[in-house]
Write a protein that binds this DNA or RNA. Structure first.
Length: 123
DNA sequence: GTTATGACTTCAC
DNA sequence: CGTGAAGCCATAA
């Protein structure tokens, strides 16, 4: 599949170039971009749709290395526990992600979690 | 080259 | 539904 321009800002290459890096990043980006508003997907789900069966972790790593200015709705990607990642240990971006999701209609509970089965993207 | 860590997942208890 | 252990892969030291 041709992403065309890949990413608007080309993001940042993950330190050099890994063998499938470019393809993986492109695929992951494409998949995440296909997540409808108001829905979320887990890393494993994105990875699977991107053609990376067991690379959930890679998805996370890619996202972390991704350019924040990209048009990729990374906030729609969460872990399998139905909770926002970044382990609430970062600069407070966790609130940002939660806020964005709430803005899209995701309802969080007191534990910063939501009903994953209810909001999971089913494509 | 090996060892340790991580925006993770899944199974078992 | 909680925590713990094993698994997978790339980056960093």
């Amino acid at each position: 599949m041709a992403i065309g321009r890949k990413q608007a800002s080309k993001a940042q290459p993950i330190q050099g170039a890994m063998p499938q890096g470019d393809a993986a990043v492109a695929a992951i980006c494409a998949v995440i971009r296909r997540i409808p508003k108001g829905w979320v997907a887990t890393y494993g789900q994105v990875a699977a749709k991107a053609g990376l069966p067991r690379r959930a972790r890679l998805v996370g790593q890619v996202l972390q290395h991704l350019d924040p200015a990209s048009d990729v709705p990374w906030h729609r990607v969460v872990n399998a526990k139905g909770e926002v990642s970044w382990t609430l240990s970062r600069n407070g971006s966790d609130r940002l992600q939660q806020k964005l999701l709430e803005q899209e209609g995701i309802e969080f509970d007191a534990r910063n979690r939501f009903d994953l089965e209810r909001f999971r993207w089913l494509d």
